[in-house]
Simulated assay, not measured.
Amino acid sequence: MNDIQFAFIDESGDYSFDFENKDVSSHFIIVSILAKESNKELLEQEVEMVRQKYFQTDEMHTDKMDNPHLRIQLLNELKDLPFNIYAYVVDKRKIREDSGITFEKTFIKFMNRLIYDDLNRTFDQLDLVLVEQGTKEFMTEFKTYIKEKSVPDLFNYSIFGFNHSKSELLLQLANFIAGTIAKGYDQTQYSEHYPLFHKIIKKKIIAINLWPQNYKNYLHDYISRNQDSQFDEVIFKQSVNLTLQYLEKNKKSEDADEKIRMDLLKFLLFNLRENPNEYVYTQEILDNLNAIRVNKINHHYFRSNIVSKLRDSGLLIASSNKGYKLPVCLTDLYDFVNLSSLTIHPMIQRISKCRNQVLLATNNEIDILENNEYEYLKKIIDLEKLAVTE
């Protein structure tokens, strides 16, 4: 059996929609701490040392640490440990009242289905671990929902479900990370230090899935590099909406490459929300995608089978020598055009020179671009010649 992947899950926030009550959370957050079985024991040992250092005899719960500077120190001690973060952030304020889910019971049922469907699509195998008891109604309902959906094999093992695995320490880690993420979203928890928190754990995050899905969710703290351009918000909106439409259209796909493409888009959306003007290096993207995969993706496969196919489908993905991003302004698109032109134009010139040499040697009897499939190339080269003569 392959190295088992565990998901230790906890939540932050509540299920209430009574926003007139200042104590009601604006967001509901679910965090999965992903860890391989081969790393589980080491991770538990390291987390226990961190817990003892910062919490002594208490559990490592987020509400027991108010000091942001201590949180920064603690996160720095966690950042190199062998785990990843996969999260959901639900802005309850943006859920329409007429949607039918602004009631606690229906909201919990809806979230059960939403998270189960996404996790089941994203991960081929996942051994889930939740809190065993307590007052967290969502966790209780989610556990029941998963058990109804999962089908054990002949050895009573579920490749996606519960298999009696336990780790109180890693559930505490999930709680602490959920509380940390809440400080960047939830109005009852918000901290001005969140950008520092995020910077420390950024490379641990596989995805933070925002819901409801709307491009305006990604405009948080967005400052365009070209504020004088009237088209920047149009570009921003188009790039995100095309991405969200693609994710919705292909969410039930079982194709392995399609799953990689969707995971890439989720990662780019997350980066857009946190760092709208920054590119992500290819290696960082590959590290993110490969963290949840047995069969690793290399650079060539990533460019030719993942990014290229998304662009073929009409999605806007900017690239430069600094990596990839979803475009938010004209400058991002120019980056893509400039990078592409560095490859395209020299290649066309080489083909043109090769063609000219063959025409010259054969007294114009052989034109290597004569075949119908090269008609487009021939037109481009002939137009370029015409432009030069003019």
Rank of each mutant, 00 (worst) to 15 (best):
F6R: 02
G13R: 09
G13S: 07
Y15K: 02
F17G: 03
D18S: 05
F19S: 06
E20F: 04
D23Q: 08
A35Y: 05
K36R: 12
E41N: 08
V47P: 02
V50N: 05
F55E: 07
F55Y: 15
T57F: 07
E59Q: 11
T62A: 10
P68D: 13
L75P: 08
L75F: 13
L78H: 12
D80R: 13
I85K: 06
A87D: 10
V90T: 12
K94V: 04
I95C: 08
R96H: 12
E97L: 12
T102Q: 12
F110C: 06
Y116T: 02
D117I: 10
D118F: 02
Q125T: 14
D127A: 08
D127Q: 13
V131T: 09
E132Y: 02
T135S: 14
K136R: 14
F138I: 02
E141V: 05
K147A: 05
F155P: 00
N156Q: 12
G161S: 10
H164A: 08
S167K: 05
S167G: 05
L169V: 12
L171I: 14
A174N: 09
F176W: 08
I177R: 02
I177M: 12
G179Y: 03
T180Y: 10
I181H: 05
A182P: 00
K183Y: 00
Y190N: 01
H193C: 01
L196W: 05
H198V: 00
H198C: 03
I200G: 06
K204M: 02
I205D: 00
N209T: 11
K216Y: 09
R225Q: 15
V234E: 13
I235N: 11
K237I: 06
N241R: 11
L242I: 08
L244N: 10
L247Q: 13
K249L: 15
A256H: 11
E258R: 09
K259R: 15
M262T: 07
F267L: 13
V280A: 09
T282N: 06
T282F: 04
Q283S: 07
F302R: 09
R303M: 09
I306T: 06
L310W: 03
R311I: 15
D312Q: 14
S320I: 07
Y324S: 05
P327N: 11
V328Q: 11
V328F: 10
T331K: 15
F336G: 02
V337I: 14
N338A: 11
S341A: 06
T343C: 07
P346S: 06
R350C: 06
K353P: 00
K353H: 09
N356K: 14
N356W: 00
A361R: 07
N364T: 04
N364F: 10
E365F: 01
I368S: 03
E370T: 00
E370L: 05
N372C: 00
E373T: 03
E375Y: 00
L377V: 03
K378H: 01
K378L: 00
L383C: 03
L383R: 07
A387I: 14
